[in-house]
Simulated assay, not measured.
Amino acid sequence: MGDSTDTSRAAVKTYVPAYQKSEWQSHADDLDMSQSEFVRTMVQAGRKGFDPEPNATAEPDSSGSDPGGNALETQVLELLESDTYSWDELLEAVADDIESRLDETLEELQADNRIRYSGRHGGYTVVDGDGDGD
């Protein structure tokens, strides 16, 4: 892996009107994406001058192995454009991404009170409609 490529993750926060957040969440849900993944994808698409490469956009009817927008394919291609990677290095780079995405998703679900961590249940659990999660 190239020494100049930093693959660590960092949080980015922004504030938008509630209606906009709701619209983004709805669109992300339609695309079967987390809100974080949706925002990252839209920012990257915007950075490509609003003329994204074929299969690089997140369309609900996309074909291929990743109908949610070819996120893994895009990530691998972006990594390989900058350097040569072994299988293990690529696996480490994309595994770090899934760990970060899972962490972000769990934080979002907990913040929305949709899940909680339960020692009694041995991990994360869905919060029931009555709010107690049991």
Rank of each mutant, 00 (worst) to 15 (best):
E59P: 05
E59Q: 14
E59V: 11
P60F: 10
P60L: 08
P60H: 08
P60A: 13
P60E: 11
D61E: 14
D61W: 08
D61S: 10
D61K: 15
D61A: 09
S62P: 03
S63R: 14
S63W: 09
S63F: 10
S63H: 13
S63K: 15
G64D: 06
G64L: 07
G64Q: 11
G64A: 12
S65L: 10
S65K: 14
S65E: 11
S65Y: 07
D66A: 07
D66H: 07
D66G: 11
P67E: 03
P67D: 04
G68D: 09
G68Q: 05
G68T: 11
G68V: 09
G69V: 02
N70I: 04
N70S: 13
N70D: 08
N70P: 05
N70K: 06
A71S: 12
A71C: 09
A71F: 11
A71T: 15
A71E: 07
A71N: 10
L72N: 06
L72A: 07
L72C: 07
E73W: 07
E73Y: 08
E73P: 04
E73H: 12
T74H: 08
T74Y: 01
T74D: 10
T74C: 07
Q75P: 03
V76A: 04
V76W: 00
L77I: 12
L77F: 07
E78Y: 03
E78A: 06
E78S: 11
E78I: 00
L79H: 03
L79D: 02
L80F: 00
E81I: 04
E81R: 11
E81G: 04
S82W: 01
S82F: 03
S82E: 12
S82P: 00
S82N: 13
S82K: 14
D83W: 04
D83I: 03
D83C: 05
T84Y: 02
T84V: 13
T84Q: 08
Y85K: 03
Y85L: 04
Y85W: 06
Y85S: 01
Y85N: 00
Y85E: 00
S86H: 04
S86N: 04
S86K: 07
W87D: 12
W87E: 08
W87Y: 15
D88S: 14
D88W: 05
D88Q: 13
D88V: 09
D88L: 07
E89H: 00
E89I: 00
E89A: 02
E89Q: 02
E89L: 01
L90S: 01
L90R: 00
L91D: 05
L91T: 09
L91M: 10
E92D: 14
E92T: 12
E92A: 13
E92K: 13
A93G: 05
A93C: 04
A93E: 00
A93I: 00
V94K: 06
V94M: 03
V94E: 00
V94R: 03
A95Q: 12
A95F: 13
A95C: 09
A95H: 15
D96Y: 07
D96V: 09
D96I: 10
D97Q: 14
D97V: 12
D97H: 08
I98M: 13
I98F: 12
I98R: 12
I98L: 14
